[in-house]
Amino acid sequence: MYLKVRVIENRFVGHPSQKIYRLVLSGQLALKAKPGQFIHLRVAESHDPLLRRPLSIAGIDREQETITIYYRLMGKGTEALSQIRENDYISVIGPLGTSFTLAQKGEILLIAGGIGIFPLFSLLEAIDRTKVQVKLFWGGEHKLFLESAGLNYLQKLGIDYELATMDGSLGHKGLVTDLLQGYLEKRALNSNPALQSNRGLAPLSAAACGPKGMLQAVVNLCKQHEIPVEVSLEERMACGVGACLGCVCTVREEGGILRRKRVCKEGPIFAGEEVVWDDEI
């Protein structure tokens, strides 16, 4: 869809120093949007910034017909976006791209690095938690960041989570992948078929979003433990619809053939095992 939508809310949330904003948009977008997809927003009517900005969808409310986006002020584009006022109309293309697979049973692990938590919010909302057990791992710079970027929300949902911060101000001091590794190792020990019966039978899957280095580590861990994992990739985009070939990633197809895929079109959600990371080419 290509349309003008009304801004219901656009204000910073959490501590002002963290520069995190929540944007709520009204419109039919909500009826079509799926967790993991993004919208392509025109942040200003000027030539500078020139391009639209792709932002992942964090919340979808079909009844109210709203979608929620979280963003962090990073540069010219998000700066311009933060100036848009409530009740203004902005130009949107979307929802665009692929979505996360919705687990129907068993257990799903969600792994987020920094603001990579935002697209996972929409997945969290969509999962039927009466049937699927959710475990979330989230790493950030420090406590203030995690609190500003939605920790309250996770607490309210009442899901099982573990946190990591670089400075140790909350949760484990270090990387989120340390947490994942610890959890998977413990789980592997417990699911020894000699010790117990059906725990290992529940389908286990994972979804992750964050910096490339983190995603690569997550995919490697999941590979070791034979867990299918989906990753949400980010890349500089121009058109957002697959025309310009600006936002590609590299994938390995059967027979080891390398191919490009467009993050905006064949992504942003990819099967972890198909992605070839930059340092591997």
Binding site: H47, L50, R236, A238, C244, C247, V248
Partner: peptide, 11 residues
């Protein structure tokens, strides 16, 4: 990648 860089009024 990166294949794109936005510049003032340009790409």
């Amino acid at each position: 990648v990166p294949r794109l860089a936005e510049t003032p009024a340009g790409l």
